[in-house]
């Protein structure tokens, strides 16, 4: 391969990267270049490769998104509050919950659900005279998994809950009273998703203009601050 071919290839690899650089505001560009200078040769080469993936229109939006997010890792030398690369999965929940009340609320709910479940499971196993080993065998998992659930160290997946309910011959809501609440909230979150392709009945209903327009215009309410 001639030198000019190699350099042409190098330039073509660098084009997505250059395009990205040009689009950056000057301040961000300065910080970006600084971070890049501090990287090893390996990581610099990886950054270029990630830009190539991110710009490749033949790849999926998901792949290109993952590539762009990779650059976050590559250019952040010490990103974490702990002063180390990455985050400790368990500690990051604690840390984030102490900063974000909404997450603290969610963590509180999860802890409560898991401990209620552990109590209910323990009670049911006792009344039905089932050992951890027996239950594990019935639901096709290991005894330590059951033990961890009883210790509130294993949040069961929905399918595990179903299996346990069947094995103990109880309604799954007896094990996890919040189940329908979570499902309802999941459906509310799903309903608000952009880009979703409508189902045929939804499309028919929204194309149907035989329903007359409402005459209601609504009414404003005063603000209490005024």
């Amino acid at each position: 391969m001639s030198t000019s071919e190699t350099s042409n290839e190098a330039i073509s690899h660098a084009i997505p990267f250059l395009r990205f650089l040009i689009s950056m505001p000057p301040r961000a560009l300065e910080e970006f270049c600084h971070a890049l200078m501090e990287c090893s040769g390996q990581i610099r080469a990886d950054v270029l490769q990630m830009f190539e993936i991110a710009e490749d229109e033949s790849l999926s939006v998901d792949e290109r998104g993952h590539a762009l997010r990779t650059i976050v890792d590559q250019l952040h030398l010490i990103p974490d509050d702990e002063g180390r690369f990455g985050m400790d999965l368990a500690r990051s929940e604690e840390l984030a919950a102490s900063n974000f009340p909404a997450l603290a609320y969610q963590v509180g709910r999860m802890n409560l659900q898991e401990s209620e479940f552990a109590d209910r499971l323990r009670h049911l196993m006792k009344t039905k005279h089932i050992t951890q080993k027996e239950l594990a065998a019935r639901i096709d998992c290991t005894q330590p998994a059951i033990s961890q659930m009883l210790n509130r160290k294993c949040r069961p997946q929905r399918k595990t809950l179903n299996k346990i309910a069947t094995a103990l011959a109880v309604d799954v809501r007896e094990l996890w009273p919040d189940l329908e609440v979570s499902e309802y909230l999941d459906s509310v979150a799903e309903f608000q998703q952009d880009d979703r392709i409508m189902t045929e009945p939804e499309a028919v209903a929204l194309r149907d203009t035989s329903q007359p327009r409402s005459k209601l215009k609504g009414q404003p309410l005063p603000s209490r601050k005024k």
């Binding site: 090893s40 990581i43 990886d46 890792d73 010490i78 702990e82 180390r84 690369f85």
Partner: peptide, 14 residues
């Protein structure tokens, strides 16, 4: 690429 960054930086700390 993500692993490369981890391997290179995992022992870096303040």
């Amino acid at each position: 690429a993500r692993l490369n960054a981890i391997v290179e930086r995992k022992d870096v700390s303040m």
